[in-house]
Write a protein that binds this DNA or RNA. Structure first.
Length: 416
RNA sequence: GUGGGCGUAGCUCAGCUGGUAGAGCUCCUGGUUGUGGUCCAGGCGGUCGGGGGUUCGAGUCCCCUCGCUCACCCCA
């Protein structure tokens, strides 16, 4: 039997309803803050991610679905949303719009990883990006909006970690300092850490190896090396979060998996998620647009995983689908008339369903009962034959003419 | 990519030390020559994830493979 590809899944109606509730929260919260929706293509030029996300990242090195489009172009199924949004910002000259440009998206992304609970090869993210603003209010607003979304979902036990990465220059200097420190203590580090010292030394902070952790306790911290304006920016973001009553923990070792971040970085997580504890996160990316050959343009944003948010979301009130009218028939000879009645009912604004399974009369009533139909109309042989209209709640039933069925239901009067 | 657990009807599962498949739920039909929610009866539905091997005989043992799952890793 053909199955959905490894790490992918079908969204069935019941699950789709929960997703729609989530999306409605997104629309209300982000729309209410003036963010407009953007959707970019599922595939992009591979170079966009190589340059935007960074060649050294795991994402680019081993997690991208890359293929030749048949015309000699290398395309990649998007592994994240920020680089594509920045590409679109440049391609459409959005720098001419009033700044900043505030965007959100809800799309699926692709990464070739080993599937796990909360981690899929095709997964969905909601993201928000603010391009063209460098002020700390932007960073804080984005964090507040994500916190609000999680709150609206009834997510419990979430934690917010924040830090600042400073500028690429500060990072470069710090990186040398850290690399030198790591090399000095190389013999005490885990092999998977030593092998990455020159590639991505910051990863050493994430190691779970006890010896390595000991070494890292004495390691220099980037947060202590920030330039004064970066430190000021970070302090301002923190002050705004404090004002907003957003609780957070300072995590000087917070490292995100994408290379484009500068200054503020943050992440919401939940222990209820198991190993894949990250709910969503993001940060400032003041050099990314330049990296993509655009003019110097600051940016800030986040992305959050739909599947993970749904895992920790409280019970969302999903409105049950109501059926005003179920159109059945006394026999197959009434099918044509029933078809016409269902059509007219829908045109009149009723939620109407037609018997489509060739059920017996008993089966039709049983089915109508199960789907919660308020009324059942049983048509006879032809439009001139009387229609039995039954109120399912009371059991009352009357015989009436075809053309009286819909007006009777619209009046909502009890049948007797 | 590495390691552990699992994989029997649409769903939840039972099948003892190998003898050629079961239950409950769901769905459909009937129980009133046409009318639901309870109850009763019956029916549809499985090449026991797939392939190979051992055996007179394998869902049950062995190997390979696919998938799910948990962890490492990474991240959303």
């Amino acid at each position: 039997m053909i199955q959905a590809p490894k790490g992918t899944f079908d969204v069935l109606p019941e699950d789709a309803a929960r997703r729609e509730v989530l999306e409605s929260h997104v629309r209300r919260i982000l729309g209410g803050a003036g963010y407009g929706r953007i959707e970019t293509p599922t595939v992009e030029a591979t170079e966009l991610f190589a340059r935007g996300v960074g060649e050294a990242t795991d994402i680019v090195r081993k997690e991208m679905y890359t293929f030749d489009d048949g015309g000699g172009r290398s395309l990649t199924l998007r592994p994240e949303g920020t680089a594509p949004v920045c590409r679109a910002y440049l391609e459409h000259g959005m720098h001419k719009l009033p700044q900043p440009v505030k965007l959100w998206y809800l799309s699926s992304f692709f990464r070739a990883e080993a599937p796990q609970r909360g981690r899929y090869r095709q997964f969905w993210q909601v993201g928000a990006e603010v391009i063209g603003s460098a002020v700390p209010e932007t960073d804080a607003e984005l964090i507040v909006l994500l916190a609000e979304l999680l709150g609206a979902l009834g997510a419990r036990g979430t934690r917010l970690l924040i830090s600042s990465l400073g500028t690429p220059e500060t990072r470069a200097e710090y990186r040398e300092e850290l690399t030198a420190y790591l090399h000095r203590h190389e013999e005490r580090l885990a092999t998977e850490v030593t092998s990455r010292i020159d590639l991505n030394p910051m990863r050493a902070f994430d190691s779970s190896d006890p010896q390595t952790r000991e070494v890292m306790c004495g390691a220099p911290l980037l947060l202590d090396r920030l330039a004064s304006d970066d430190a000021e920016h970070f302090a301002a973001v923190r002050a705004l979060l404090d004002d907003a009553g957003i609780a957070y923990e300072l995590d000087p070792t917070l490292v995100r998996g994408l290379d484009y971040y500068t200054r503020t970085v943050f992440e919401f997580s939940s222990d209820a998620l198991g190993a894949q504890s990250g709910l969503g996160g993001g940060g400032r990316y003041d050099r990314l647009i330049e990296q993509l050959d655009g003019p110097p343009t600051p940016g800030c944003g986040w992305a959050a995983g739909i599947e993970r948010m749904l895992m920790i979301a409280g019970e969302q009130p999903v409105a049950p689908q109501l059926t005003d009218l179920y159109v059945g028939m006394h026999g197959r000879s009434g099918a044509r008339t029933a078809f016409a009645l269902a059509r007219e009912a829908r045109r009149a604004g009723l939620q109407a369903q037609l018997e489509l399974a060739g059920r017996s009369l008993k089966g039709q009533l049983r089915h109508a009962d199960r789907i919660g139909a308020r009324y059942v109309a049983l048509v006879g042989d032809g439009p001139s034959a009387p229609v039995s209209l039954r109120d399912m709640a009371s059991g009352d039933e009357l015989e009436t003419a075809f053309q009286n069925v819909i007006p009777t239901i619209l009046r909502g009067s009890r049948l007797s």
